[in-house]
């Protein structure tokens, strides 16, 4: 995996790697990728992917309004909140 690819997937993952760990993680990724490349030798031309071990149709719930409101409970867990909102740095100047 070249450095540009690592930079791209770090950006997509919203992760930054410090210099000490970057080199190690980059080499680890190469080792892991060469292991998973073994899958390429399997002929899967007529095989449907199996995304879940129980291939059942998702359950549809009745469209009923529930009265549960845990807003206060959830907001107490936020690192920063203000009244009814999660607070983050200003997005629009």
């Amino acid at each position: 995996m070249d450095k540009q690819t690592v930079r791209t997937i770090c950006y997509l993952s919203r992760l930054s790697l410090d210099q000490n760990s970057a080199q190690k993680i980059e080499s680890d990724l190469d080792v892991i990728l060469s292991m998973i490349d073994e899958l390429q030798e399997v002929d899967t031309s007529k095989i449907e992917p199996m995304f879940s071990p129980i291939e059942q149709t998702a359950i549809v719930y009745d469209d009923v309004i529930s009265s549960d409101n845990l807003k206060e409970d959830f907001l107490t867990q936020a690192p920063n909140s203000d009244n009814n909102f999660f607070k983050v740095p200003k997005v629009v100047e």
Binding site: L15, S16, L17, I25, I36
Partner: peptide
């Protein structure tokens, strides 16, 4: 920064492989 400081290296490795 929250994710990079909050996750350990094995978790980061797996997130990066998964994203890839």
């Amino acid at each position: 920064k929250s994710r990079s400081e909050g996750f350990g290296n094995e978790v980061k490795r797996r997130i990066l492989i998964g994203t890839y």
